[in-house]
């Protein structure tokens, strides 16, 4: 197996505050990598750096290298191009309210200049099927998405991200706004998508990380503490900090 993404000495700042303090980790293709850690440890910042979303927030700064198939995404590639190849699903389903379900799915294609009606329709059906939403929305593709449940909305967001055919899918706590049944549905979906995409999942639900991921990275205070295959991390953590966090002992006892 080859490395799809190699992160090298990644550092990130919010204003004066350094959030990531030099993270290096290679990520294999067609795997699910879970990133866990206490709140405020930089999990979200970390994956936002992987498709250059970190820099859209005012006052932020990034240093280091992220190699995507051997090319540094911070050097010589347009951020827009990076984001097309590295898709992202957010914590809360953020569909575009002014558009129909169909328009939402194909928004990325349409706005990048692909206008063929047939082509868009095929892709929409395909992606909705991949996201397991096709059967539920096929009769109301041209309605607004207002009537969908939040689990359906999140799957709509996944379909929308898939439509631009990314190679990597970043998922920033995709289930934290969902009920357990909808969460399980998304987890199944992730396992199916693994065949064609490389998935990086941020979660603070450790059962979820254990259930779906192949590799787990434990981040603490902006540093990568442990990065191993998931069973390894959960059964035989090498670092005591990881162990404390996983077992729930003094996980969040940072000085106030």
């Amino acid at each position: 197996m080859s490395y799809k993404l190699r992160v090298e000495a990644l550092q990130a700042w919010y204003g004066q505050h350094q959030v990531l303090k030099g993270i290096s980790m290679p990520i294999r293709a067609n795997t699910i990598t879970a990133v866990i850690g206490p709140s405020g440890c930089g999990k979200s910042t970390f994956i936002r750096c992987l498709n250059r979303m970190h820099e859209v927030v005012p006052g932020t700064r990034v240093a280091g290298r992220v190699w995507l198939d051997g090319r540094n995404i911070y050097n010589g590639i347009n951020a827009v191009e990076v984001r097309r190849r590295v898709g992202m699903v957010f914590q809360t389903p953020n569909i575009f309210p002014a558009m129909s379900i169909f328009q939402n799915v194909v928004a990325g294609l349409y706005l990048n200049g692909i206008r063929g009606r047939r082509q868009l329709q095929e892709r929409a059906e395909n992606c909705l099927q991949q996201a397991g939403l096709w059967e539920e929305v096929r009769d109301r593709l041209h309605d607004t998405a207002a009537g969908l449940s939040s689990g359906q909305l999140q799957r709509l967001c996944i379909a929308r991200a898939l439509a631009v055919e990314p190679e990597i899918l970043l998922m920033d706590e995709p289930c934290s706004a969902l009920d357990p049944i909808a969460s399980i549905r998304i987890e199944e979906l992730m396992r199916e998508l693994k065949a064609s995409y490389t998935i990086i999942l941020v979660t603070h639900n450790m059962q979820q990380a254990a259930r779906v991921s192949d590799y787990t990275a434990y981040l603490c205070d902006g540093e990568l503490v442990e990065y191993e295959s998931t069973p390894e991390v959960f059964i035989r953590p090498k670092d005591s900090r990881t162990e404390n966090y996983i077992t729930g002992r003094g996980a969040d006892t940072r000085p106030l």
Partner: peptide, 9 residues
């Protein structure tokens, strides 16, 4: 905006 940016627009 972020959702749209993340689609590579």
């Amino acid at each position: 905006q972020e959702a749209a940016l993340a689609l590579g627009i």
